[in-house]
Amino acid sequence: MKRKKKWYDYLWIASLTYLILGFFNILFAWLGLFCFFIPLAIAVIKGNKAYCNKYCGRGQLFSLVGGRFGLSRKKDIPGWIRSGYFRYGFLIFFFVMFFLMLWNTWLVFAGAKNLGAVVTLLWTFKLPWHWAYHGTLFSDGVAQFAFGFYSVMLTSTVLGFLTMALFKPRSWCVYCPMGTMTQLICKAKNVTTSQKQ
């Protein structure tokens, strides 16, 4: 008995398209904000993880490549990765890096810094990416944010594919900052609602 495919089972196509578009025009990176605000909004308003459970295209992409295409060892993830310390630690690290990226964007907006047309992989490696930059109508900061945001998305995809290959297809979901954060919000919401009752 196989579950019938729904429209949202194809959202991996959107995730893949996103990564490809950013290769040609970095400004498409802005679309990635949907993957930030939709899961948060669902968690805050509805108090559940429907985004992870149903809609997340990135998770589907890992299931597909690691599962269907078999590019995964399908081994158990080491205990320390699924420990709370690592998951929350990674969430904090991710956020610190995210705010540094926003700060950098602000500096470019304010004219204190020049646009760096690079995509930074794993917070370390600066990849030239100038071909995807065709100028912006507004401030260079708009493009700087796009480069920064695309770096975040590409880095998490690369890490995700790495742990997909080493462990189970969707290993990324164990330490995905969005997943950890939405679960935290749901837990917090549940505590407050059960106190009200």
Binding site: R3, K49, C52, N53, K54, G59, S63, R82, R87, R170, C173, V174, C176, G179, T180, T182, Q183, C186
Partner: peptide, 10 residues
């Protein structure tokens, strides 16, 4: 230890 990803649901 569950991370509530829901991979099991599908």
């Amino acid at each position: 230890e569950c991370v509530a990803c829901g991979c099991c649901i599908k």
